[in-house]
Design a protein around this nucleic acid. Structure first.
Length: 512
DNA sequence: AGTGCAGTTGACTTT
DNA sequence: TAAAGTCAACTGCAC
């Protein structure tokens, strides 16, 4: 740098590892020379919800991001350290016009870090321009009109990648290894990171591979192939939600007519509604960061859920004695991914059957998910644990789910080889026939019927408390989907017409 | 040919 | 993206 160089626009890459449809990068590059910066933060990667599989997925994305920047004459500068320290060092070394990044809806740690960064920039008189990455709206006070704003944002043109960038003006370091960040875990079947892998998945999914999505997404027997598998790319930003939305929308248009493939069209419609829900859930954490630690509905503070080490270990090891649950837990641990329906069942099992606190199982599951997205994760942990106050309590039967989703025991045999010799009939409840006797497989850690009865009683006891309905209405007004109907309580018993309306709005909400 | 009845199905409620 | 139960309407069949 020389004294006469124009000031730099620092583009801070966070959970947005791409150059395509990257609004802060496009805006910064239009204004002057750019410093493309990624900060590997040891404090972040040491958090209980961070893991090696997430970092390695990110590191693969960084390698491709650097290549994309280089192809345009630029390059990625990677620094390891505390974000404030790294940014202060950059500010000390060269004149900086502004910091550019996407808004991040993260956990308490990244929120606190962003406040420290903002403080530093205020001290130095440098502007920080944060741009929206998803359909999540910062500073939202009312949910009304949210869906329409989402649709408008998704249909807006994508931001073009800058055609030409300046070379890096600062020496970077190598992308740190997982070991250097103290991260060991990386499962053998973790899906690869990087934009090329993401685009391959997208192309395949909007084509023939995704044709059966709607039918097959519920069962883990088929979901690994039938689902898009784009979630980690959306979580870490190797693809933008908008480009995924627009690609699937274009494909839907091709199949929507009388000559189109109706099955494919229905699957694409189903997929679009999930993209919508993605932002719907992140919005909850954006609007109320405390949901990482405290119940949506504070009446559930009275629940005495625990962190019983034996039950927690059975869950963590995939040795609960329920073959389908254990198969799903082991598949998740080995792949870093499992389908949504199974995630719901696993949280339900942990929170109701095992009566474990979601704050004890949440970090464990988060580390397993390569696609860990804080807003979706904490919203879902609470929703499937029955503590939001606005959602129906859904207690899954691991036996019924086993029969429904894996009737022939294919999935169980693959992931619980101890039981591979059992007949399909015995696989779902091996304790009943004594078929597992003598095998290295534990009896059920809890009895299904009595555990469910106890959990149900304790959950509904909370609902009887004074003032429950009033606070539930407050939660609904703040977080509820407008398509689910308003308000949900305070009108006495529901009549027939009311129930009919609710049913229709549910169908509308799922767009099936 | 209509009646009685066990079993099924689907809508809805409760937990 | 629950599960279990209630109830009424319906179905098939024996008589």
């Amino acid at each position: 740098m020389t004294r006469t160089s124009p000031p730099l626009h620092v583009v801070w890459f966070k959970r947005d590892l791409r150059v395509h449809d990257h609004v802060p990068l496009a805006e910064a590059a239009a204004r002057g020379p750019v410093l493309a910066l990624y900060i590997a933060e040891p404090g972040f990667w040491a958090l209980p919800d961070s893991s090696g599989r997430q970092w390695r997925f990110v590191a693969e994305g960084l390698t491709e991001l650097d290549a994309e920047l280089r192809a345009r004459g630029g390059g990625l500068v990677v620094r390891t350290g505390d974000a404030v320290e790294v940014l202060r060092d950059v500010l000390d070394r060269m004149p900086v016009a502004a910091l550019w990044s996407h808004q991040e809806t993260g956990n308490a740690w990244t929120y606190a870090r962003d406040r420290r960064v903002a403080e530093l920039l205020r001290e130095r008189g440098v502007a920080w321009h944060e741009r929206r990455q998803h359909g999540v709206i910062r500073g939202l006070t009312r949910r009304d009109g949210w869906a329409a704003r989402w649709e408008k944002l998704m249909r807006a043109p994508v931001a073009e990648a800058p055609a030409a960038l300046n070379p890096p003006v600062l020496d970077g370091a190598a992308i740190p290894s997982a070991a250097a960040l103290g991260l060991a875990d990386d499962p053998p079947q973790r899906q690869p990171g990087g934009r090329d892998a993401g685009l391959d998945l997208l192309t395949g999914f909007v084509g023939p591979r995704g044709r059966d999505y709607r039918r097959a997404m519920a069962t883990p027997v088929e979901a690994f192939d039938a689902c898009s598998r784009l979630s980690p790319h959306l979580a870490w930003g190797t693809l933008s939600l908008r480009e995924v939305y627009q690609r699937s929308r274009a494909e839907l248009a091709a199949h929507d007519g009388p000559d189109g493939d109706r099955t494919q069209a229905q699957s694409l419609v189903s997929f679009r509604s999930r993209l919508h829900w993605h932002c719907h859930f992140i919005q909850k954490l954006e609007s109320q960061p405390s949901i990482e630690f405290t119940h949506f509905h504070r009446a559930y503070d009275r629940l005495d859920r625990d962190a019983d080490p034996a039950k927690l270990e059975a869950f963590a090891e995939g040795r609960t004695g329920y073959p389908f649950v254990d198969a799903c837990l082991r598949a998740l641990a080995a792949h870093g991914w499992i389908n949504f329906r199974v995630r719901a069942m696993l949280v339900s099992f942990a929170s109701y059957h095992l009566w474990l606190d979601w704050r004890a199982t949440g970090p464990l599951l988060a580390r397993w998910f390569t696609d860990f997205e804080p807003g979706i994760h904490w919203s879902q942990m609470q929703m499937q644990s029955g503590t939001t106050g606005i959602n129906t309590v859904r207690i899954y039967s691991p036996i019924k789910q086993s029969r429904d989703l894996d009737p022939h025991g294919v999935f169980i045999r693959r992931w619980v080889p101890e039981l591979a010799g059992l007949a399909a009939k015995a696989l779902h409840e091996p304790w009943k026939s004594g078929a597992a006797a003598g095998l290295d497989y534990p009896p059920p850690v809890v009895d299904h019927a009595s555990a469910v009865r106890s959990a149900r009683d304790r959950i509904f006891a909370v609902r009887i408390g004074a003032g429950y309905g009033e606070e539930a209405d407050t939660v609904q007004a703040r977080h509820g989907s407008r398509r689910s109907g308003l308000p949900r309580t305070g009108r006495g018993p529901r009549g027939r017409a009311d129930a009919k309306q609710r049913r229709e709005s549910r169908q509308l909400g799922l767009e099936l």
